[in-house]
Amino acid sequence: MSADPPRRPGFADDSAAEPPPTRTSDALRTPALLVEEGGKGAVAVPWAPADLSVPRAGMGTLGLAASGIAVLLATWAGFGLASVVADQFATSPLLGWLSLAAAGTGAALLGAAMLREVRGLASLGTVDGLAALLADPAAPIEETRSRALAWVRSVARRVPEADRVIPAISAAGSVAEIAAHLRAGVAAPLAGEAARIGRRAAVQGGAIVALSPSPGLDGVIALWRGLRVVREVATLHGLRPGLFGTARLMRRTISIAATTAGADLIAQTAAEGFVGATPVVRDLAAAVPGAGIAAFRLYRLAVATAAACLPLPPKA
């Protein structure tokens, strides 16, 4: 307990609010508004909420080892090439220029591949950015609108009917409204198109598995066809996934298949009347049991990939 005499509330610069000297033996300090603190301006309460994002695990042991090997290989190849070119120049200028042109062409092709990877990852990042904006009702509407329109235009190259929502998105008054237009006018035709890709992959994959000479090859065939499905669906959604982009998308698809879209996938699969609507698969499933399972998995992969590529938050 403080030994100070109790006070009454008030402002400090208010002379009338000065504490009454000794009204009673246990006089209370009265409330008061105190010293004028002009010049300090508006109150900006210290407020800097920490980031809750789970920190990335960073590079694991295998990743570090792989990176080290890659750097060593690249250095070895680079110095080796330089040495070869230098040797050729020492032998004859013509051979030197030829070897330099060959090495330059190879480096340019590698650079083009890397550029494609970077662009693929950037396109994934763009869709992720739009997803973050659409999930947030307080997101700046103009930024959300311009990103949404850019995405719709990229999708409309393959799904022309997506174009119809452009005027509605241009006139939308809220982030929620933009999300609703995207869901109704873009997500729905994309889902239909992704299901079509899935059915086609199912028929092809099921048929190839049925024809494969060894059960050991089934897994390889399913993986190869699965990767193609992921890339086709991603391209449909305006993405350009390269090697790393596809791997990232694959990881997200698996996560979605395992969590978010579990019940949705089952419902959608049932709703599509998959087996009933695809006689080839039905016949294959009857003849070769493994083929039916492979086909079903490829179809589900297409549906899950479509969910992973959409920038829309899952329906509440």
Binding site: P9, F11, A32, L33, K40
Partner: peptide
């Protein structure tokens, strides 16, 4: 802030209807 010769804990803000900051002692 200092009040009645003693330093006391208070809060600082802009009272409604005023333009500048003032410290407020809520009393006991």
């Amino acid at each position: 802030v200092k009040r009645g010769g003693a330093e006391i804990a208070a809060v600082s803000g802009i009272p409604l209807g005023e333009g500048g900051r003032r410290s407020f002692d809520p009393g006991h």
